[in-house]
Simulated assay, not measured.
Amino acid sequence: MASMLSRLIIFPTPPSMIVPVMSVVSLVAIAGLGVSEILGKHLQYSKFWNLNSAKSSRKQIQLSSRTGMLVLYVPAFLSGVASFVLYPNHDLRLFLVKATLTIHFFKRVIEVLCVHKYSTSGVVLDSAILISSSYFSATSTMIYGQYLTQGFPEPQLDLKYPGILLFMLGTFGNFYHHQVLASLRTNDDKEYKIPKGGLFDLVICPHYLFEVLGFIGIFFISQTLYSFCFTLGTIVYLIGRSYATRRWYLSKFEDFPKDVKALIPFVF
């Protein structure tokens, strides 16, 4: 049954061991971070920067929020740009994978520079390196894995066009809700507030919800084992992150509306 499903929606696995190994590593590592978020062990950036630091006596290097976020996203963006030189060809699916990943991280860099407004929190260097390495290796491996499928029989079910629509929906929805978050603060306002507007009236992390849709779109375009594992791991991580975010708001704001869910309207 699993083999039939994989032939239906996923390319055959290339003979190289790199992609299968990285697929398992990516899924376990990223999903593990999501479970850690639920258990209260957070990657230390944004509002969660100080939650674990009091429990550790080790001196931690803190980056400013803007610098830390650039460290997170610029390497993955450059990997996407470089892929157009490293893997030049006319295959539509490979081009779309390169384009969507590059656009995704370019958008993030632009948001860091032009959209986000930052609190007094920062980004711990250890967390920045971990997340940045994950994004860089994921981008590089996903594109390389797609390149290795050249000449392989296509999956029976072609999902790349629905994938383009999902990616666009996820990208615009994520960007819109980041703008809503930014609008909550003036330039001198560093405090957190309960978000309002858009889907924030239903879930506390609609930007994560649309990020999930964007990555599902990339998987639909790619249809490789690695993109499936990375997307699944990312979904688990964002479930954990949104759960922790809702818990944080409940602890900080007595008037936080209890009917606002974490990630999925009316469900979770």
Results as ranks from 00 to 15, higher is better:
R246M: 09
S83M: 03
H207R: 02
G163E: 10
I38M: 14
S140N: 03
T120C: 06
M22L: 14
D158C: 04
K190G: 05
L78W: 07
F230A: 12
G80L: 07
K196R: 15
P14E: 06
V71M: 11
S83D: 08
E191A: 12
H90N: 14
Y87L: 07
G32S: 11
P257I: 03
F105A: 06
E37A: 14
F228K: 01
I18N: 01
I143Q: 00
L39H: 08
S16P: 00
S53Q: 15
T141Q: 04
S56L: 08
G214Q: 13
H116V: 10
F219V: 05
L232R: 01
I61S: 11
A128K: 06
I239D: 06
A182P: 07
G214K: 01
I30R: 00
R185L: 07
M4N: 11
F106W: 13
F77N: 09
M17I: 11
S26R: 00
N50K: 10
F84N: 10
T149A: 00
M142F: 03
A82M: 10
Q62C: 11
L51F: 04
S222Q: 04
A128I: 04
L184G: 02
K261C: 13
H116R: 07
T186V: 01
A76W: 03
K196E: 12
G122E: 00
G197R: 02
K107Q: 13
F11L: 04
S65H: 14
G170F: 02
A182L: 03
F48S: 08
D255C: 00
P155L: 06
D126T: 11
L159V: 05
V260W: 00
K252D: 05
S57M: 08
P14D: 06
S26T: 13
I9E: 03
V24E: 00
K59A: 15
Q146K: 10
I61C: 12
G145N: 13
K41H: 12
F106D: 08
L8I: 07
S23L: 02
